[in-house]
Design a protein around this nucleic acid. Sequence first.
DNA 1: ATTGACTTTTACGTAAACGTAAATTAAAAT
DNA 2: ATTTTAATTTACGTTTACGTAAAAGTCAAT
Lengths: 128, 128
Amino acid sequence: MNYYTISQLAEQFDISTRTIRYYEERGLISPIRTESGQRLYTKKDRAVLKLILRGKRFGFSLEEIHEMISLFDNDRTGRKQLEKTIAYGEQKLKEVTERIEDLMQLKQEMESILADFRERLQKLEGSE
Amino acid sequence: MNYYTISQLAEQFDISTRTIRYYEERGLISPIRTESGQRLYTKKDRAVLKLILRGKRFGFSLEEIHEMISLFDNDRTGRKQLEKTIAYGEQKLKEVTERIEDLMQLKQEMESILADFRERLQKLEGSE
DNA sequence: ATTGACTTTTACGTAAACGTAAATTAAAAT
DNA sequence: ATTTTAATTTACGTTTACGTAAAAGTCAAT
């Protein structure tokens, strides 16, 4: 397994190194360190970073994303733990589903507005 | 046509009056005023507010939302104007479509993780 | 070995999106 | 008529999510 440096990840995702370090400050990502203290990121870290950025695009706060990440990465062995995790996951899934429906409605509206504008343009072109 | 007061809208959408005034500061909404200076909101204003809040849930900035609102509300008569508006609208529509696809992928992933957890729970219950 | 690119921590700065408080005025209720 | 409730403006405060700069150490290349 090989590693990424912080600037490599930064370039890949077109974000700053400061941003990546900030996510670490907030406990969202935990790279290992070399003897000298340099951060090294695994593929898994990279995947987590990708998740964070996607969450951000949907308007989730880092805090919310943090919670969602812990879904993946905690080893939840106990039965109670599992049940709690599932309940939380179902809740989040519901939220995501609602957002999708909401977005699709927005899309519809935008499409109908666009159709209206296109029609207006047609009429203008016709009367030329 | 009847009007809403600011606190009525605030209650309906579960936001603060400060928030609504802030949107006005930013030019997103423009209620009329009584003689004494009290804000009065029409149904249309209410619809705009709803739009703002929906935009926010998708992670759009107030600035972006501002631009999108002007799509609805400007009377764009000229041909050039219409073409620009349509182009902008198509762009935004594309963004929304991408977000939907992105969200659906997230949903899939969450579902498969949940399925995994449920399976684990089953095994635990079975071995009881 | 030295230059240059990269990394680290520390720490102050900032824009967006409000919160909150104060002082004042107006509307609604008793 | 007078409380109570709601509204206004002004203005400073706060949180989130980073930006930016400084000082110092490290890695890669010539």
